[in-house]
Amino acid sequence: MISRLSDEKSRAAIAASIERRRVDARGLLFRTVLQACLLLTLALLAVLLITVAFDSTDQLGARFWDFLGGTLRSQSGDEQLGVHQAIYGSMWIAIIVALLAFPIGIGAAVYLEEYAPRNRFTSFIEVNIRNLAGVPSIVYGLLGLALLLNGQIFGLDRLTGGRSTLSGGITLAILVLPIVVITSGEAFRAVPTALREGAYGVGATKWEMIRTQVLPYAAPGILTGTLLSMARAIGEAAPLILVGAVTGRLGDNPGLFDLGALDERFTALPIVITSWTQQSGRDAGFATAAAAAIVVLLVFVLMMNSAAIGLRNRFEKKRG
């Protein structure tokens, strides 16, 4: 070894290889491939958004307010074709999800993070919630079908009126419940222990501590989670198919605040998109109607998502 290093020629070679700047061709290729993966993904997203936007101009560009105010029709050329019932349906579903899933989900997260003793039963509940979050959405539809429509266990069909807005809303509330619990739980875990101890130190009870310290500190995180799960609920279609959302024609046309209509038949934006997409083979005009309905849905969903993302980033930055 030593003899070789003292060799004049090897020394020159080593010096040359240290001093020379070589292009790392493999590394560059690797980096380019990685970039290509990301760019292709974003390109697909861009193509998706552009395709939908272009297709939708036939409806949204030509008859914007008519489309928003119109109803379900059997012909795509119908002047009254539109998504008004679907928007109301989706809004009511969102309200029901907010009223049911948010209090129960946040309550469960408070219990699991603040009260629950560290024992087997608690970890059973936690594992159970994580597994629920992975159950395919259509299985929740099967649950809604058996429980709320056919009334197989508690006779709940009398309460919900079978295929109704209420059934759809409850099913989706059950669907997003584990997501709300998990995201709120994360928000609670991020609360500094010092805040809790400070509250105890001035004589607060557990609940007073949670109400005055934990909940306000975790509020942005909880809000992020609830916004994301709300977006998920609004975009979800599979369970609604099973609880009987209307795809064809919806006779009644109730107003937004017509509470009596909650136990009547309903439709929702994702359902309308599905139905119109499937009908586009028979009647090509429905493809543009579906694209227009997608734009309406995406406006709601992306607004909630970007609000959630922005909120989270802002507080992450603030709290380091």
Binding site: A237, T277, L302
Partner: peptide, 10 residues
């Protein structure tokens, strides 16, 4: 965050 119905249409 894009709903699956949108991917279905696409």
């Amino acid at each position: 965050g894009i709903p699956s119905v949108v991917l279905g249409f696409f």
